[in-house]
Write a protein that binds this DNA or RNA. Structure first.
Lengths: 133, 133, 133, 133
DNA sequence: GTGGTCTAGACCACG
DNA sequence: GTGGTCTAGACCACT
């Protein structure tokens, strides 16, 4: 279900964070849903358990999941943790980074537009009415 | 002309690479244009000469600039160095990271669309209809 | 300068986070100040370098410090990263936790009041005009 | 009467311990008052009986309750089990953690003072002038 | 079984 | 030298 790509420039734990965050954001994983245990996911991805634990820790810090010792890890109900200023700051910096990453690949703005629209379209499908809180 | 920000999370050499790549991609620097020498740029930015050399090396490896011995460093005429497969892989990976970063901030696909359009619009201005090759 | 207490119920990395956060909040460490390197602090506290790195990572995630590879770790200029709702939520939960931790120690509300006032007084001294942003 | 919250980061047995300790400290449960049996409380909270037993064991070890075989579990008359040094150490440690948690949220000492006073006020109401021993 | 913490030691990226 | 990532393996707390 989750995929780790060795060619990907992102570190492993980051790929895990991104992958799970995406699943939660698109509603594939709903609030209350249980995630695979640290050890189970580590085994499945054939990475070290600490690496998965680190990814889970980051998602926990971001308020996207909650863990209960001896029980498991669960998707938490979404809330707005960041200030509006900070949200915008992060959007801007992510956008800047994204453009910096791809600009030297020689894609034209039109091509980039197309690909982003595709991706957003895929998001919208599984994501018909985003909760506001 | 080029700016190094200490607060920027990117390493210095990366900021240089991105800055120059952006200038080339947007047409501010045209093929054949001369870049400052390694030493001159290092002085101007008050960074280590090795750092500038590393940035130039990366840009050279990407085929965006070329140095002519004893003459200087110049923007090269655009060539496609990466395979289409590789370019697409990198675009996908950058896109996934971007969306993962952004989506957990609670922005709706519509909002993201708007912001990306803004940014692309800013790009298109300095970039009327470049290369399709 | 920083102290790790073996009897302390908090894990080591938490004690480091708390200690540094306190120093930043009270102005003992000012924005831009450099923190000891991961390895240096690990040596000084005779703990593993990974433990210090974990503490620094948490402070970084909280936006209190910034690290630059190959350079060092620095106190960042404070900003308001969390939404007001989230700030209040966290204040409440910290308060609840604090009271739960100490209530069974047999201190009366008056004693608790006194001790908290002492601590707040110490904060106010080094902290005469808290910046708002 | 006692509440277990699944979202609470504390383990269940801890929530039980804290909840009962709080009731005793605030005088809601007076010395000699009878507590529900392990099984009864487990049923009521729909948790495992072992979990309740563990909570009762900890409260017993702390001298806050005592069980009389074949009769039931009762709130004991308060005794000081921890040394003053140990109590103070724990208070300091809890205080440090609390302030570290809170101060990085950007609350001013004045705001913190206010909120702590509120919370202590709520405590004092059910706690007119208990033990100074 | 679950997650959390810590250690030891390796390798990489950066300046 | 700096910080960041990953592994391997240990121990603890909780259910």
């Amino acid at each position: 279900m989750l995929q780790i790509a060795t060619g990907d420039p992102r570190p492993i734990f980051r790929q895990i964070v991104d992958g799970i965050a995406m699943k939660i954001a698109t509603g594939v994983l709903e609030p209350g849903a249980r995630l695979p245990s640290v050890r189970a996911l580590a085994m499945q991805l054939t990475v070290n358990a600490n690496t998965v634990a680190k990814a889970y820790a980051e998602l926990t810090a971001q308020g996207m999941i909650e863990s209960r010792k001896g029980v498991g890890v669960f998707v938490s109900t979404p809330r707005q943790t960041l200030s509006d200023i900070e949200r915008n700051r992060r959007l801007e910096s992510a956008l800047e980074r994204f453009l910096a990453d791809i600009i030297s690949l020689g894609f034209s703005p039109e091509e980039i537009h197309e690909r982003v629209e595709d991706a957003l379209g895929r998001l919208r499908e599984n994501h018909p009415s985003r909760r506001k809180d």
